[in-house]
């Protein structure tokens, strides 16, 4: 962060607003302006907004229901057997949250950063780089939450939810979105051109396919299961699956911590990088 954004004594001319890195929920007023901006922009691009939700829903309809008819039940580690579509739905739910978060913080961010110079305009106002990073990540978390909520409603409609604990899936979706938004924003500050975004796809596709999304972890070879256990989407999938199937235990605090740390580290790196890039 540059010195222009150090903690400062305020003059009476400007109302004091929080601008430091604050936990989500304790947002200052200034990052909220960035959320308002994105809301205004998407009022005219609502079709674009739908895509991130439709994709996992289509997967649920085709793979969940279609493959479900072929394979019957899936035996979980707990010994419990559930229909395949019940097994796969929480995985796709986590994917919906991830998609919602990643789009605006990677591609969307880069277009505004590089071509629109939108952030240069923001930074000539009282907004600082931390406000920008917090605002964009919060927006992405909200977008992820909207997708997750819609997906959750679809799951209930299809009768794929087995426990009332499933209401916890919503905060979990926000946690997944936070982790991927923070990391996505940080990664995007290192991108030089659109070509570099292939690396993000390269990271996301295997996460989508191999995070115990479609098969239980026990079906994977030993070494692959070990790798999957430390990847980020797996944390989200296992958390969602646990609450949707009503399988809660203290061990779930580990993936929660993982996602919080991932999002926060990403957010901090992003704010620092934005300072270096936009306020040289």
């Amino acid at each position: 962060m540059t010195a222009t954004d150090r903690p400062e004594r305020r003059s009476p001319h400007v109302p004091a607003t929080a601008g430091r890195i604050t936990p989500i929920g304790l947002l200052g007023r200034r990052p909220v302006a960035i959320i308002e901006r994105n809301f205004l922009a998407y009022r005219r691009m609502w079709a674009l907004f739908l895509t991130g939700f439709l994709e996992p829903l289509l997967y649920l309809g085709s793979i969940g229901v279609g493959v479900g008819a072929l394979v019957g039940g899936v035996q979980l580690a707990s010994g419990h057997t559930v229909p395949y579509e019940v097994f796969v739905a929480p995985g796709l739910f986590a994917v919906a949250a991830m998609n919602g978060a990643i789009m605006d913080t990677t591609f969307g961010f880069f277009v505004k950063f590089k071509y629109g110079k939108t952030y240069d305009a923001m930074l000539s106002t009282p907004l600082g780089v931390a406000d920008v990073a917090i605002g964009e990540v919060t927006w992405a978390v909200l977008r992820g939450a909207v997708y997750a909520l819609a997906f959750l409603v679809a799951m209930v409609a299809f009768g794929l939810v087995e426990s009332w604990w499933a209401v916890l899936a919503l905060p979990i979706a926000m946690l997944i979105a936070y982790a991927f938004a923070g990391a996505g924003l940080a990664a995007s500050t290192f991108m030089r051109s659109f070509v570099d975004f292939d690396f993000i796809s390269l990271a996301l596709v295997p996460l989508f396919l191999f995070s115990a999304t479609f098969f239980p972890l026990e079906r994977y070879p030993e070494w692959l299961a070990a790798v999957v256990r430390i990847t980020p989407l797996y944390q989200g999938v296992s958390l969602t699956r646990a609450v949707v199937l009503g399988d809660l235990h203290w061990g779930l605090l580990a993936p929660v911590t993982y996602l919080v740390v991932m999002g926060t580290v990403g957010l901090r790196i992003a704010a620092r990088r934005l300072g270096t890039l936009l306020q040289p």
């Binding site: 150090r6 400062e8 400007v14």
Partner: peptide, 11 residues
């Protein structure tokens, strides 16, 4: 501007 960037930018 060092330490008062936000205030100055507001005005």
């Amino acid at each position: 501007p060092r330490g008062h960037g936000t205030d100055i930018r507001g005005r």
